[in-house]
Amino acid sequence: MQFDEFFSVVRERLGSDKGDDSSKKKTDIPAGLLFKCPRCRSVTFIEEFTRNGKVCPSCNYHSRLSARERLKITADDGSFREFDRKMISKNPIDFPGYDKKQQELREKTGLNDAVLTGRAKIHGEDLVLIVMDSNYMMASMGSVVGERITRAIEYATEKKLPVVAFTASGGARMQEGIVSLMQMAKTSGAVARHNEAGGLYISVMTDPTTGGVTASFASLGDIIIAEPKVLIGFAGRRVIEGTIKQKLPDDFQSAEFMLENGFVDMIVERTKMRRVLAHLIRLHRMPEIKEGDDNE
């Protein structure tokens, strides 16, 4: 019951995953032209919302970006070199329709699964970047997500590079059953080894970071950053409301809620993220990492 209705909860709050959202049909303007903020419920024209970096102009809620959009505003131009691009998931529990669904999503999103990993630079600082993409099955964590993240961290440990992970996830990938749960152990184990080797790991929680990803590598950064107003939590909101039989306040499980309760180090606006990351990496730079610089 811990992950009950996780996906539907996230979808409901973000209001953009289901094409046939009936509330949208009530407006005169086609739904595709409007962004309805899940935090303050104000409505903005998509054009203005996009111009504003996909940030709600009324309340500063930082909405979701695709992994490629995130890379574009995060890594130095042309610096990203992707790892394991050709890795695709199989069907470990023979879940009906999973292969087909994956194939459709690969075609639709141009992604091979819900995370991109690779080497990059930010303001010239070398690092390993992990960027999750909620357009692919709510960035749930299956074999490929787990394996790519684990390999990326292992690579960083070996090359003495810092890791920055932009997390976003609806939680476990149920279609992969227990194999999905084991990815929590794999990724957290890789973080443990990176720690033992003295490597820096910065986790940046973006919308939404929930379930098994919150309960594994996302919560294990040396430094945990969140974007303003994003959803961060373990259990689904509706599950909790079902348990306590009352509505929860709007800011429950927000970045600000997590900061106040001591589970996030800082909230950083999208426009300042690159600078903050580069500064933090510089402050943690050790002589060995300088030597690891390769000139491209």
Partner: peptide
């Protein structure tokens, strides 16, 4: 745990 995963 490292070996658990099913991918091509």
């Amino acid at each position: 745990f490292r070996v658990v995963g099913d991918f091509d």
